[in-house]
Amino acid sequence: MAFNHDHILDMKQFSAEDITTILDTADSFKEISQREIKKVPALRGKTVVNLFFEASTRTRTSFEVAAKRLSADGLNIAASTSAVVKGETLEDTAQNILAMKPNIIVMRHGHSGAPHYLAERLEGVSILNAGDGCHEHPSQALLDMMTIREKLGGFEGLKVTIIGDIAHSRVARSNLIGLKTMGAEVRLAGPGTMVPREFEQLGAKVHHKIEDAIDGSDVVMMLRIQRERQGKTLIPSTREFARYYGLNPVKLKLAKPNALVMHPGPMNRGVEISSSVADGEQNVILEQVENGVAVRMALLYLVSGADGSIDG
């Protein structure tokens, strides 16, 4: 096993072997969360800073739990309470944090490429992208992939359909790249304003009628409609979206009989997903959350092992 990544910025950086290494490591870590004493000393003495410039509960908590279970010391910096509101630049904020000698910075930022920018400029610290603008969200894609592999055994030839506002979704983009790397077929579906044809260049099949996309799928992944944003400009109304693009039991029947229903959360019941599907037997939404901790433990562990000073 060789994992030679100092930073985790996007899914583009990973080969199929890298992804397998991450998922195998996460499989081993999952057992730790099921123990009575949920802690191992692997990252004792390491400091992990969660630097979040955008609101997040799920991802931040998941990274925080992951760091604690590995015995790392974690601290949270939310932009709304930090010097950012006083006008400090991203690089100055980061340099100030760096002066306190953290080992890993987990960051979320509203601008695409912000983690890449810091990874190039900061020395001696690993950057983990927890979501950058409309670009990527690699840990989310990896936890989705862990759940798919766990339930369906692999990726080769699987048909995965992602439905919603693909253009603005970092979750969709990361999943698309990761799943293509592992040999799955990815279909993207949603209204034309949300799913531009350009995605075909990334190897996806684009559909504007979700029935066509769901037909014969192994996995149906719904994305959240951000009512406060896209809900106003990209679609006439959330009710219309729910009727044509929301997942309900009738549309789900078009997929394979035991197809998985996934959602990165938080769900809008009655908009992109009906309650009967969200609570149905095919949903693996809480498994996604559980696997999220294991995947993030694996990422923190692997970047720690891959620090520059190592030899064979």
């Binding site: 081993s28 191992v40 692997a42 092992g305 190592i310």
Partner: peptide, 21 residues
Amino acid sequence: DITLYRDDIGTRSDLKVGKTD
């Protein structure tokens, strides 16, 4: 599996984590 309890994490590149069963 004792990988996570080793005293040389961060100094070795091959630290494949196995399952504790």
